[in-house]
Design a protein around this nucleic acid. Sequence first.
DNA 1: CGCGTTGCTGTAAACGTTTACCGTGTTTCG
DNA 2: CGAAACACGGTAAACGTTTACAGCAACGCG
Lengths: 344, 344
Amino acid sequence: MGQGPTITTIAQRAGVSIASVSRVLNGLPTRQETERKVLAAAEELGYVRNAVARSLKSRRTHQVAFAMADVGNPAYLAMLREIQPVLKAAGYRLVLHSTDAVVADEIEVLHSLGERYVDGLIMVPLRVTEAHLAMLASARAPVVIIGSVPEGTPVDNVRADSRTGVRLALDHLHALGRRRIGLVNGPLDTVPGAARGAAYREALGALGLPYDEELVEIGDFYRAEGGRAVATLLDRVPDLDALMCANDLIALGALDVLRAAGRRVPRDVAVVGMDDTDLAAASWPSLSSVSLGSAERGRAAAELLLDRLRHGEREPRLVTVPPHLVVRASTGRAGAEEPRGDAP
Amino acid sequence: MGQGPTITTIAQRAGVSIASVSRVLNGLPTRQETERKVLAAAEELGYVRNAVARSLKSRRTHQVAFAMADVGNPAYLAMLREIQPVLKAAGYRLVLHSTDAVVADEIEVLHSLGERYVDGLIMVPLRVTEAHLAMLASARAPVVIIGSVPEGTPVDNVRADSRTGVRLALDHLHALGRRRIGLVNGPLDTVPGAARGAAYREALGALGLPYDEELVEIGDFYRAEGGRAVATLLDRVPDLDALMCANDLIALGALDVLRAAGRRVPRDVAVVGMDDTDLAAASWPSLSSVSLGSAERGRAAAELLLDRLRHGEREPRLVTVPPHLVVRASTGRAGAEEPRGDAP
DNA sequence: CGCGTTGCTGTAAACGTTTACCGTGTTTCG
DNA sequence: CGAAACACGGTAAACGTTTACAGCAACGCG
């Protein structure tokens, strides 16, 4: 674990200059004899190029950062799963930042781009504040934002379309004959919470259904809170026949509570989740869920970043990934349902 | 996005030498007046330290790599979730490597330590080959291996104890009165497959139950394959009353197949999974599962690495994380069960 | 008043590469 | 046969820091 060999060591051993060593190692034209000597020396010494020194000179680190709120969140993980191989294939390493849902941490990540330890950044901000915009305008490396960013912000941008997503879910429920469709949402001061709430109202309108605020309940984006919200909602509106849940965890909470209340899913109440996480397929009954294309967004972001790293300056691009509905048992047709259960 | 300011720029602006700038920025004793000028200049110029140049000089990158087979695997993710904050708190960035279950990729990661782009590495190898051992012996940076490594290998090592884990599960099933306990395993040429198979046999012995190879079926560590293996097993041994599954995905497949076959869980057949992933809590009935302490292993690995980075040479350490059984509905007591279902 | 401290600052070397530039020896061609 | 072209390879500078060392002014003390 001592001092590894450097090109200087090799140069001495091979009896040539460090410039020749460098040229050989970089495949620049060299006399065969020189090449042979250098390669032999490198081999014997077990030489490995020092990435730090290379980066200093070349101003390229071959690293890209991915910053999101929480390593544990399946939606971010779906992105990560796509981003990783794309970057790897292009010869980039991935530096992972978890900002713990703290805005100051996100700003810090943007600031640290100035340290030049990465060539670019893919970020999923919780919400985009003034501070974000200021940092983005002066960012010292290319940035791709997953999420919505105001018109004119000088970064590539990848968006989901939860509006259409909610719409797809409600259309589906409507087509199944459901008319009393509740919404179980997360906090309205979050970007997804606000968007999904508005989309719900709008989609109802498009279907010619009345908006009834009795049918809306706000909890949080977790299973227990979601379940609690559903319980409240069930008490208030006993005749509801479908639930649109703002994410899959809430939907799992809904399944728990419905089961405990003796409501059959989907016969009595159909349930739709959102994000189409792994959990949706694992649950019983399996959960119909609106995919907002996390994987596709991750891939698109990685490709935008690579493109910019390769081709330098160009107009910022906007990519919007369309959602799609994954139909499973929780909204399945008659017969595809779970019977009354006696859960522990 | 042009050339950022360097300490030279600051030095000129402040009318001092670059050495003074460096000293001020590193908090070394300086005259107040100098400090003021330097900080003012740095502030005006929006200076940020160049991490690459720093690393070159200091031989420290403040980066640590984590290498595992597959970003999508929940067990690795549980580790990652613990590793990330520990490293972050200590001022290290995390570089993520996914080796796609290819041994050559793992070797490559070990080799690339010579590039010195990280200060250390945490690796979860699929299996430890001769090539691994050779690379580990000559690794150019501290390495922590999660998994088992032969006595005497010069690396810190964190192990799970799946032997005890299987034992816990079988004890539990036995205590519930189950006597015909099947094993649904993954391939025997994998480390976990082999270990779990042996542990099953041993645990049966300890309980005074006969080992019946009829009760063992090999599939793969995925849901569909697991389900298929269970179907075969059910055909062959219709009277089995419990299933030990080598991971949670297999167990989910088991639930699918049992439900389709009209067997009630847990009344007719109790099911235990392994790894205690998020999916275990999401499924219905929720899945009893043996936790092998992925999170704890991740944390232990991160702490071992940090300790070594701080204190340099010391004897390699071995940490074994004890497993524990998480009891949920799939082995619940009578009444805590799912009734006969008519799944889609 | 001279000398050893003390406190700060500047010069320069070093970290390990890449690369512009120049010198040397060989080839080519008029 | 001499000049021009060429192919290689060496010297040295640069990337942006940190830091050993030396210089210098002010100061205390005998």
